[in-house]
Amino acid sequence: MPYEVKEEKGKDGRKVFLIQKENFLELMTDLRKQGYDHLSLITAVDFRDRIELVYHLQKSESNFELLTVRTVTYDSTIDSVSSIWESANWDEREQYDMMGVVFKGHPNLKRILLPEGWVGYPLRKDYDLSKNQYVNMDDEGNDRVSFDPGDGW
């Protein structure tokens, strides 16, 4: 293999692969070829200086055995895997919405749960919960977000 993969055991006995961000897409492509056809979950964990991305893959041939791939990004960007697994499409949108991770090469990267125009990424540790944002709707049904309590709810 042209890249280096560190393997370790997780706390609950999972198989965990650690991978550099540069080789991440290559590894994922190879894993798909090895039969990991079910991408279960993408999680981003904010450690203030870096964001760790955790991918849970499953192999349908061997009883959906679990494999975890972890990678770390310091500039909140990572290559998108939505061309490899269709399910990554919504997962990556959710992580973009909640964590502000930019997935390069994603076909439709916009907010999925919060309204368009929301300021900040709520699941980040530095998100300020004391500042309320208010949402209103225009005539076409598009959302409008502001910090003004008189405008919206």
Binding site: G10, K11, D12, R14, S40, L41, T43, V45, V54, H56, L66, T68
Partner: peptide
């Protein structure tokens, strides 16, 4: 401390919790 991932079968499908 650490991180775990647990999956269970909910009526809708595989329900997973990733806890750090």
């Amino acid at each position: 401390e650490g991180d775990v991932y647990a999956r269970t079968e909910s009526p809708k499908g595989e329900f997973g919790v990733h806890l750090v």
